[in-house]
C-alpha cells in the first residue's frame, strides 16, 4: 500500500514536469506546424543557463526562470521570423512545410547542442537545491516546489490563452489559420510568438529540471522524445492533452521504474508506438 502511494506521488510529481516539458512542443506544432526535434535542446539550454546564473551571480534557480524564459522566447521569435517563416513561404503545401521544418529543426539540434558543448563542455553537472525531504511522505522538497511551480505556471498560461487578446488569437490560429486571418489576427506574428512561447516554456522546464536532476549538454534528445510521447498521447496541438498526457506518462514512468528501472525507456516507446497506431489523434482526439 505504501509502495503504491509512493509510486503514485512520485509519478504525479514527475508528470507535472513532463507536462511542462511537453506543452511547449505542442504549442510549436499545434499552431506553428513545426515539429521541433530541437525542443529538448532548449530545455538543456534553460538548465545550463540556470546552472550558470547560480554559479556566477548566485541567482536562485527558481528566480532564474525570469531570465531563461524570456531569453528563449526571443530566440524562438527570431528563429521563426528568419528560418521557419522563409520555409513556409517557399513550401508549396503544408505537408512539405512540415517535412522541411522537421529537417531544419534537426539541423538546429546540431547547432544548439554543439554551441552548448563549446560553451559549457560535455561533463555532467549538478547542484544541490532544496533536496531535504518532507518527512511524512519522504517526498523531496525540490520536487514539491517544482510541481507547485508547474501548477502555477500552467494556471497562468491557461488564463493567458483563455482571457487575453493574444491568447484568443493563438487559439483561433490553432483551429483555423485562414479564419483567424479573416478575423483580423496577424497570423505571422502569432506564429512567431507561439514558436517563441514554446521555446520559452522549454527553457523554463529546463531551469526547473536542473534543480532535480544532473545535467549534461547531451540530455536534449531524451527530453524531446518524452515530449513527443506526451504530445502524441494528448493529441498533437492540444494543450490540455499535453497536461493530461504528461501526468499519465509520469505515472507510467514511476510504476515501471519501481518494478524494473531499466525498462523505463522501452515502456515510453512501447506506449508511444501503441498509442500512435491505436489512436493517432491522441487520447483526447475524436
Amino acid at each position: 500500500m505504501i509502495a503504491f502511494r509512493d509510486i503514485f506521488i512520485t509519478g504525479l510529481l514527475l508528470g507535472g514536469i513532463f507536462a511542462l516539458v511537453s506543452v511547449g512542443l505542442t504549442l510549436q506544432y499545434g499552431v506553428a506546424r513545426v515539429l521541433n526535434v530541437a525542443h529538448g535542446e532548449f530545455i538543456m539550454v534553460g538548465a545550463f543557463m540556470t546552472f550558470w546564473l547560480l554559479g556566477s551571480a548566485n541567482l536562485n534557480p527558481l528566480l532564474s526562470v525570469a531570465i531563461t524564459g524570456p531569453v528563449a522566447f526571443i530566440m524562438g521569435f527570431i528563429l521563426h521570423k528568419t528560418l521557419f517563416r522563409r520555409l513556409m513561404d517557399t513550401s508549396p503545401s503544408l505537408d512539405i512545410f512540415e517535412g522541411k521544418s522537421l529537417l531544419a529543426s534537426f539541423g538546429l539540434l546540431y547547432v544548439v547542442q554543439n554551441l552548448a558543448r563549446i560553451i559549457w563542455g560535455s561533463d555532467v553537472e549538478g547542484y544541490n537545491f532544496l533536496n531535504s525531504t518532507v518527512t511524512a511522505a519522504q517526498i523531496p522538497l525540490n520536487r514539491l516546489v517544482a510541481l507547485a511551480f508547474v501548477v502555477v505556471l500552467g494556471g497562468a498560461f491557461y488564463f493567458f490563452l483563455a482571457r487575453t487578446r493574444l491568447g484568443k488569437a493563438i487559439r483561433a490560429s490553432a483551429q483555423s489559420p485562414t479564419t483567424a486571418e479573416l478575423m483580423g489576427v496577424d497570423i505571422r506574428n502569432v506564429l512567431a510568438i507561439c514558436f517563441g512561447l514554446g521555446l520559452g516554456l522549454a527553457a523554463i522546464a529546463g531551469s526547473l529540471l536542473s534543480t532535480l536532476f544532473a545535467i549534461q549538454t547531451s540530455i536534449g534528445l531524451g527530453y524531446t522524445v518524452i515530449a513527443m510521447v506526451v504530445v502524441v498521447m494528448g493529441g498533437l496541438g492540444s494543450i490540455t492533452g499535453a497536461m493530461i498526457g504528461g501526468i499519465i506518462l509520469g505515472l507510467v514512468s514511476s510504476t515501471v521504474t519501481f518494478f524494473h528501472p531499466s525498462l523505463t525507456m522501452i515502456a515510453y516507446y512501447v506506449i508511444f508506438i501503441v498509442l500512435l497506431l491505436a489512436r493517432p489523434k491522441g487520447i483526447m482526439g475524436k
Binding site: Y29, E98, G99, M228, V232, L276, P280
Partner: peptide
C-alpha cells in the same frame, strides 16, 4: 499513419 505521424512513428521506432 499519414504525414507527420508516419515520420514520428519511424523516428520512435529507431529509438525503440
Amino acid at each position: 499513419l499519414r504525414g507527420v505521424y508516419f515520420a514520428i512513428f519511424t523516428f520512435a521506432l529507431v529509438l525503440l
